[in-house]
Design a protein around this nucleic acid. Sequence first.
DNA 1: ACCGGCTGGTTTTACGTATAACTGAAGCAG
DNA 2: CTGCTTCAGTTATACGTAAAACCAGCCGGT
Lengths: 344, 344
Amino acid sequence: MTDKVTEKPTSRDVARAAGVSQATVSLVMGGKWRGRVSERTAGAVRDAARELGYRPNLAARNLRLGRTRTALLVVPALTNEVFARVYTGAARAAAEHGVGVLLYPSPDGTGPARDPFASARATLDGIIASSMAADALDDIREGGLPLVMLDSDPKHPEASATVNLDIADGMRQIARHLLGLGHRRFGHLAAEVDSWTFRERARALADTLRTVPGAALARTETAALDVTAGRQAAERALTGPGPRPTALVCDGDVLAAGACKAARRLGLRVPEDVSVTGFDDLSLATALEPELTTVRLPAEAVGEAGMRALMAVLDGHAPTADALPVHLVARGSTTHNAARPAGS
Amino acid sequence: MTDKVTEKPTSRDVARAAGVSQATVSLVMGGKWRGRVSERTAGAVRDAARELGYRPNLAARNLRLGRTRTALLVVPALTNEVFARVYTGAARAAAEHGVGVLLYPSPDGTGPARDPFASARATLDGIIASSMAADALDDIREGGLPLVMLDSDPKHPEASATVNLDIADGMRQIARHLLGLGHRRFGHLAAEVDSWTFRERARALADTLRTVPGAALARTETAALDVTAGRQAAERALTGPGPRPTALVCDGDVLAAGACKAARRLGLRVPEDVSVTGFDDLSLATALEPELTTVRLPAEAVGEAGMRALMAVLDGHAPTADALPVHLVARGSTTHNAARPAGS
DNA sequence: ACCGGCTGGTTTTACGTATAACTGAAGCAG
DNA sequence: CTGCTTCAGTTATACGTAAAACCAGCCGGT
């Protein structure tokens, strides 16, 4: 042992130590040696490897195999709990397949992070992208990699597979819940984001209200996805001309939190004077008082399904197009419309 | 053009198309051709590369250079907003250096995700790890990679660099804030997590209270880091034997949210009957009513500093040990102790 | 005695890049 | 005209692994 202790041992070093050829080491470490190498030799190789602290060099393996066991997840921002949960699910599924997850981009959506995967053709096996990160898609496309789209228009071009949430159904559940409680004048706090998922919500809400005579979408206000913007939008919705809406449907729990603050500032009680609904079922939903009636998105499941779909595509299976159900969680922020006793 | 359109072009293909050698292509694409290749030839190479849609194969480059421009970030859970923010900062700094960020582990802390970096010596350049993910550290150490520790005991062994928050000072600011408001009987909702950062908080709180005659830590309750556990712990703290604490110091905003719910369940008003403080300054803090008095952690800055430190270490610079300041954000969840007029 | 097949390996090659070492031509001073 | 530089490239090699192709015994069947 000279000063070479600091050098990382290669499979050739292990071979030398075990008195076999490099190929044998590769066979044994690769695990596919059944019937090719004797039990004795394999043991010797493993011992030598452990002794030297040998780790296969993944860069070399990747080059040789043309596969990296790494997937890229493209989401707008991890500080949005929904996407953190998507990541969680994706990472879990990835771990099951022995795959790593690389994230893109510098996740506040800003930043010049194009670089990392501009030349990704070799470091990535595939990409999973949320439709809300659509601006990054142009860069992605030219990579020519398998692409799984999350929560996007089901008939997305260029996608090898898609995983969707039944967002429209979620909004229908919200609307029917409120209609069932006797509400007829609605306000909608819409996200100020141009994305399929939010267009779906608006459409589903309007469509459902149309099915009930007398029900109407009195006001629609848009807001950025933060509490303050939600509060301001809700103040506009609650103080505008004409009779005040008795129910405020919000495109996200964050906006709903803002709506609750607005209501209280205006001296209105939630839910007695105005019912408020959220969307997403963030942890925030149960931290508030009253707890939010909202729609739980199976975000982890989306991530898991996305990763599984990618693995399937990489294994040569046919593209899939899953759609996952969402469901209403009725809590304390909604109640009967006081001005209009339920039971119609 | 035959059916080979699907094959990814290599630098050799570009060389053939441009009528030069592969080495010249490498020179040009690598950008270090000043004085080695004529302007004309370089242009031809770039044209050919664009024509063919050439992307350098990163696996090959990594193998050749022994550097991957990829760092691993080890955090307990991205669904914890603090760590999502740490990631955000780290990713921003990484993007500036043209580096990718790989995340570990399957971030709920469970899962068998050991695999991805068990043999990471070649796919990673270095590791940034939060002390709260300490259980993963054993696996990391044997990799022999540069390691930057976040928010850990400053004198951590094996760390190439450390980035710390002055957590103790944060807690001191909380304590002094409440003492200044006249509070003397305190409750502490401590996180049920064995980690340096939480030990610091407990120690700093106790130490600071000791400096004021008459002040006392009446009760300490521990809770898992979620709203429900926080509520239950707070109920214990507020209903236990002896006089009720007038201020509840919580180890996190999430616990503080639980404490607010507990107070209201018990018919107590926040902050008039009991002051509540959080820690972290999550977005939750301003979504609640009243808004939480808390300590803002510069989590993005931690991530950025961690990545910068790692880059410095990789460039051969000396280990560093940064410590970042935190500061109190006084909001509506704390007020004067009604039973004891301020001004002593 | 000889062929075929099995066991347990070894030799060799290829993956795509970066770069050290080399080369041929031109320019130019002496 | 010779010898030294500089320019503008080319040739050759190494990075560490996986796996295809090869090979030496040995055993059993005919």
